[in-house]
Write a protein that binds this DNA or RNA. Structure first.
Lengths: 234, 234
DNA sequence: ACGGATCCATACCTGGATCCTG
DNA sequence: CAGGATCCAGGTATGGATCCGT
């Protein structure tokens, strides 16, 4: 039972809506994807792959968007009972050697984030097989959001291009972070040092902060000329 | 039971001598390498890996020589009852884009062939588990052999550097051939065309002709001032 | 709470070679 | 017979993310 790729974005969103409310167990059974692993806490990518399968994403680990012809990237995101993300979101690996001379507009994270289909997934503790899929959100960065991402990215790009990648910690960046992305802390990749030579360093990835994705999933309430609406007091 | 790497070439050769006369079944059992596959005709590299294991070769698919610190390349070679090779011998992949501006002395096949430990393996049909390992030969190209290899290599290098790789068939080369090296004929890699642009083509490898390896495994009988020795007629 | 560290699946690549028609 | 085609194992890289100690 493997669905074909959706023909257009409307069909993709339609399908994503049909997933809302279904549990992981139901979905896996319907897709003949085997039982929900008992040790789901060690199968970190399992839900993401399950939803890819359910939506007919071009499977595999290719660098293209999940729905290449549609230009849509799929991201599942674990949320609490209120729909607030429990984790930051991995965006893409940091291409350390290519951070010089690339503009934000042409950067890998910008391309990944150009259009994202967010699928929230209930991540309340101890409910593995019963965890439910939430309602999807298609998102494209607003000018404000794009500017915030660009500001952070340009800060990182300058540091890295100048060989100061070791100064970067997860504290940096208002909406976008750089954190390790590797099998373990002994992994190594190449970067440039302040003198322009090649040196080894830990592979890193771009991540979106929780506060940023929280705002995406919870659009602000509409404001009126009279100010924010308050619930009637009884 | 996995042997450590040999300390020097003498130890390597010693160990290789102890393999002579043993069957694949015996060797596999001694190494705890599982049973000899029944469908050995589809496990093309199995014997090569078995012997690597037996001799403590730095396992895996790294581009280094099998015995890196010794500068020795290990090659098993299937032979008939007389010790004559039944197949040509794969040497290395053709690095199509790097054939220009490299001298034979610095080329990949030259490095691979600088010193080879040949292990003949009985390849008479229908004797799978009973096939026996033969006596090893350590070989370094003689000046004559090196010149023959160089001649062929330079012919190939010129063709490829000028974008004429498609003209190369296995008919070409007196001792060294170029033939496909790929999972199948639809595989593609890059090469340069006659105008210097990049085009896709089938990945290829260097192979030693049977007649060449036959001469390595069967050194010529000593000649005397009276001519070749003939068996006494009774 | 979150910054640093890590876990799993799978595609891809390389190195081991021999297969198999015409 | 041998030129063209192919087969398998295992390591590495990439993409899916969440884990977990302080």
């Amino acid at each position: 039972v493997i669905p074909r790729p959706p023909a257009d974005q409307a069909e993709l969103l339609e399908r994503a809506e049909t997933l809302a409310g279904r549990s992981l167990g139901e979905l896996a059974a319907a897709l003949d994807a085997g039982p929900v692993p008992a040790d789901l806490h060690r199968k970190k990518g399992w839900i993401g792959r399950l939803v890819e399968l359910a939506l007919g994403a071009s499977a595999g680990n290719r660098p293209q968007p999940d729905f290449e012809s549609l230009g849509v990237e799929l991201k599942t995101i674990p949320v609490d009972a209120r729909g607030v993300p429990r984790e930051s979101t991995f965006v893409t690996t940091v291409a350390l050697l290519e951070m010089g001379g690339v503009r934000w507009e042409d950067s890998a994270p910008r391309k990944k984030l150009a259009r994202v289909l967010w699928i929230p997934v209930d991540a309340r503790p101890s409910r593995d097989g019963q965890r439910r899929i939430g309602r999807p959100t298609v998102w494209t960065p607003s000018p404000t959001e794009d500017a915030a991402l660009r500001d952070d990215w340009e800060d990182f790009a300058e540091l890295i291009a100048n060989g100061w990648v070791e100064l970067i910690t997860a504290h940096r960046g208002r909406v976008l972070q750089i954190r390790p992305k590797a099998a373990n802390a002994r992994e190594r990749t190449w970067t440039t040092d302040p003198e322009g030579g090649l040196v080894e360093t830990l592979p890193r990835g771009f991540y979106l902060r929780r506060s940023f994705t929280a705002a995406i999933l919870r659009p602000p309430p509409p404001t009126t000329p009279l100010g924010p609406v308050r619930p009637p007091s009884r």
